[in-house]
């Protein structure tokens, strides 16, 4: 078996920048729905970079599970989650940030991975090697990548 499914972030997890303004995964504050009101970085998200997070197998690989009409030119959209068309109209920024960071708050028992969480896993691995994780885990996406993908989702208004 040589090929990995690469459902989410890949080997090259950019280390979380220890920037003064970055909120670390364990310090994120949510309301009862899991909404995250405050930006994780204070730096506005870049929707173009967020688009890359959506489609890249080594990053968010969101289209592994979701269909997105605006990303039609990318191959292989999955059917495991709902279409993301119109999510920017259905949810506000805080809700989308919460869903991407930890979907299990908004949707209990969701199959959707938590992209900005680092604890509470059963037998976490060292990326896709099948071996045990060494040392503290990195989140699947960096704080800025979460902001970028949220900025992209906000553009999906229809």
């Amino acid at each position: 078996m040589t090929r990995h499914l690469m459902l989410a972030a890949g080997f090259a997890l950019a280390a979380t920048t220890l920037h003064a303004d970055v909120i670390l995964p364990d310090d994120v504050v949510t309301n009862e729905y899991g909404d995250i009101a405050q930006s994780l970085t204070g730096v506005p998200g870049d929707a173009a970079a967020g688009r890359d997070v959506m489609v890249n197998r080594g990053l968010g690989n969101c289209i592994a599970c979701h269909q997105v009409t605006a990303l039609e030119d990318e191959q292989f959209h999955g059917e495991v989650g709902p279409s993301l068309d119109g999510v920017g109209a259905r949810w506000d920024e805080a809700a989308l940030r919460g869903i991407v960071a930890n979907a299990k708050m908004a949707f209990p028992d969701s199959i959707m991975p938590s992209f900005y969480r680092v604890s509470g896993f059963t037998r976490p691995g060292n990326a896709f090697t099948g071996r045990a994780a060494e040392g503290p885990l990195e989140p699947l996406l960096t704080a800025q990548q979460v902001e970028d993908v949220v900025a992209y989702l906000m553009t999906l208004t229809e």
Partner: peptide, 15 residues
Amino acid sequence: HNRFRGCIRDTRGET
């Protein structure tokens, strides 16, 4: 068992 191992590896898990 090799198939099982591949599927757990794909969860970013320790198989």
